Amino acid sequence: MTTAMNRSNHSDSDTDDLGTVISMRDEGTEEVSARLLASAARLSRNAMTEIDWSLPMDPTKYGCSPEWSSLYGTEYWDELTEEQRISVTRHEFASIMCIGIWFEMILQEMVVRDQYLGDYHGSEFQFALVEIADECRHSIMFAKASEKMVGTSYKPKRIVGKLGRLFKATAKNEVAYAGILVAEEVLDVFQRGCMRDERVLDFIRTVNEIHVLEESRHMKFAREEVRESVKGIGWARRQFSALVIAMGAYMIVTSLVQKKAYADAGLDADRARREMLGNAHFHSMIRSSCTHLMEFLDEVGLLTRPAMRYYRKAFML
């Protein structure tokens, strides 16, 4: 299946309802925020009421499209039974959702800190609060979904958790919002590739659809914040910001599928990890998910040579 490769160009347009195109070239953060507030009022959804969490899971359905498994295309994948393949995709996507919760906690703190003593009557301030509310609901949704699918909670490595704590306490301006954009863009393409795949569990497809819908607004907001932040900045700050963003991106992307997920799926975790690291297909899928992100970072002057080294290490370039 090739749906994972199909995506509209986010450098010029975005969708607020999985179909309606919103101009990416609005006049500024305040104008964009006003439009996003109106979109959120019309189109926000709630997984707690929309999904019947009591329904049994179809044992024949995957946790994500097989093509998005980190082992797809490897010799190990070819050796697995269909039951094992289903199990590993469920544990992989549970890991991705749990890492998503971790980063959404970071995101919420950065946005709250950025808007502290902001213009309470302004659209930018009000949409920032909408985004925080969305992320709270998304985190609950991911928690419920991973619990239902595999019953296991995954967290980043201890050192990554500590670095994330430092990042959320210090990142601001273009570093904070570009960091937010990195996490959202990568997961967005993954979920777009899975949400219409009938081989995937129905409730997971709904989770993906809700997240894609609402994150399209968050990504647009983040891009406008980055554009505003980089206006007129000097060479040294640009170089520093680009490097910190890339280091954050490396931590996020390399943490998505935790080694424990392979073990919980009943696989040889060491072998699975080795095969994932050498899996050209998986690396290609990651690069495809980062195409428009890299174009945007280049557009705003945040794709520097030192930064590119980290993106390549994470298979994002």
Score class of each variant (00 low, 15 high):
28 G>E: 14
53 W>F: 11
97 M>N: 02
36 L>I: 08
168 K>W: 10
219 M>A: 09
19 G>H: 05
73 G>V: 07
254 T>K: 13
66 P>R: 00
114 D>K: 15
136 C>H: 14
8 S>E: 09
256 L>Y: 03
49 T>N: 13
268 D>H: 01
160 V>M: 01
256 L>A: 01
92 E>L: 06
180 I>G: 06
224 E>I: 09
25 R>W: 10
148 K>C: 05
111 V>E: 07
98 C>G: 12
310 Y>Q: 09
24 M>L: 11
317 L>G: 01
196 R>G: 00
246 A>N: 04
1 M>V: 07
1 M>P: 08
297 L>T: 10
310 Y>N: 11
121 H>R: 11
135 E>V: 12
207 V>T: 12
287 R>Q: 11
40 A>I: 00
162 K>W: 12
242 A>M: 10
244 V>Q: 00
13 S>F: 02
262 Y>Q: 05
249 A>E: 02
269 A>M: 06
109 E>H: 10
139 S>K: 00
116 Y>L: 14
155 K>M: 15
156 P>H: 08
308 M>D: 10
38 A>R: 07
241 S>N: 15
149 M>Y: 15
170 T>W: 01
184 E>Y: 08
234 G>Y: 01
265 A>I: 06
54 S>D: 11
298 D>H: 14
217 R>C: 05
242 A>H: 06
136 C>E: 10
206 T>C: 02
82 E>P: 02
158 R>W: 12
176 A>Q: 11
205 R>K: 08
183 A>D: 02
211 H>M: 14
101 I>D: 03
85 R>W: 09
22 I>Y: 12
40 A>C: 07
295 E>R: 01
294 M>C: 15
21 V>E: 15
23 S>D: 13
92 E>D: 00
238 R>M: 13
163 L>W: 12
40 A>K: 04
91 H>M: 00
212 V>S: 04
212 V>C: 12
72 Y>M: 02
94 A>M: 09
152 T>P: 00
98 C>Y: 09
57 M>K: 06
61 K>D: 00
110 M>E: 08
156 P>N: 08
234 G>V: 08
295 E>C: 05
86 I>H: 03
224 E>R: 08
185 E>P: 07
195 M>H: 03
32 V>F: 14
148 K>G: 02
217 R>P: 00
226 V>A: 13
300 V>I: 13
280 A>M: 13
283 H>T: 09
40 A>H: 04
68 W>K: 06
265 A>F: 02
291 T>P: 08
247 M>R: 14
163 L>Q: 08
74 T>E: 02
189 V>S: 02
61 K>M: 06
203 F>E: 07
53 W>D: 02
271 R>Q: 15
97 M>P: 03
290 C>W: 01
162 K>G: 06
120 Y>F: 09
177 Y>C: 03
50 E>R: 14
238 R>T: 14
248 G>M: 07
187 L>E: 05
253 V>N: 03
168 K>Y: 10
14 D>Q: 07
287 R>H: 09
87 S>E: 08
125 F>T: 04
209 E>F: 03
100 G>A: 10
267 L>M: 13
233 I>V: 15
15 T>L: 15
273 R>H: 15
220 K>A: 12
100 G>Q: 10
16 D>K: 05
42 R>A: 11
103 F>Q: 05
163 L>Y: 07
239 Q>E: 11
281 H>F: 13
176 A>E: 10
298 D>M: 13
